[in-house]
């Protein structure tokens, strides 16, 4: 598995502008554990959530403020949701899906388009594994939704929400399996097989 890159490893002998890398003396070095793709991109294998404007996230209300809410989205500081950006009136502990509107230079976060999620379970998943949970054009998450009958939201920040309606037990176990095996190829087939054999039992 030589395409697994470690911090400080040279990924190009020329200066390249790429994520999760830096340039020194005309050469490019990786900064995190990552996979180097054929088209010269580094895909991180682990690590904290790096918030970007436009990301879909899942979180919960951790504090009620004068004109909005603090939302825990697993970042070191909570995100802010103005009451104007949320149709529902929220209570402490309410789980919601939302979009990141803005990230400023000290990583303060503002959310918008919040939608409250009722009657379900919040699951923590390594943020680096979320792209595999979602799949290409939502392919993976759609398979799980279809086979379990659950409503599922997978936030880029590493929280997923699974509705109680449907086989939520199986859905959560499938999410855990994806998290554990995200880096091993043939994932979609293994997940389909797992869901099919569990469905028979």
């Amino acid at each position: 598995m030589s395409n697994i890159i470690v911090p400080g490893q040279m990924v190009a002998d020329k200066p390249l502008k790429m994520g999760y890398a830096y340039v020194e003396n005309g050469k490019t070095y990786a900064t995190v554990m990552s996979l180097l793709t054929d088209d010269h991109k580094l895909i991180p294998l682990c690590g904290p959530y790096e918030p970007l404007a436009g990301d879909g996230i899942v979180g919960f209300v951790s504090e009620i403020k004068f004109s909005g809410y603090s939302i825990n989205i697993r970042t070191p500081a909570a995100a802010y949701l103005s009451s104007r950006d949320c149709r529902d009136k929220l209570a402490l502990g309410d789980v919601l899906a939302a979009t990141i509107r803005l990230v400023d230079e000290v990583k303060s976060l503002e959310l918008e388009d919040a939608k409250i999620l009722r009657d379900g379970t919040l699951v923590q998943i390594g943020p680096a594994k979320i792209p595999r949970v979602i799949g290409k054009k939502n392919s993976m998450i759609n398979i799980i939704k279809e086979k379990t009958g659950c409503e599922i939201y997978a936030g880029r920040n590493g929280y997923a929400w699974v509705s109680s309606q449907g086989n939520s037990d199986l859905a959560i176990r499938t999410l855990r399996k994806i998290e554990h095996e995200a880096h091993i190829s043939g994932l979609t087939n293994r997940v389909s097989d797992f869901l099919a054999s569990a469905g028979k039992q």
Partner: peptide
């Protein structure tokens, strides 16, 4: 630190 995904210039 590398296992935690903390970005570093070297190991």
């Amino acid at each position: 630190l590398a296992d935690a995904g903390i970005p570093m210039r070297d190991l």
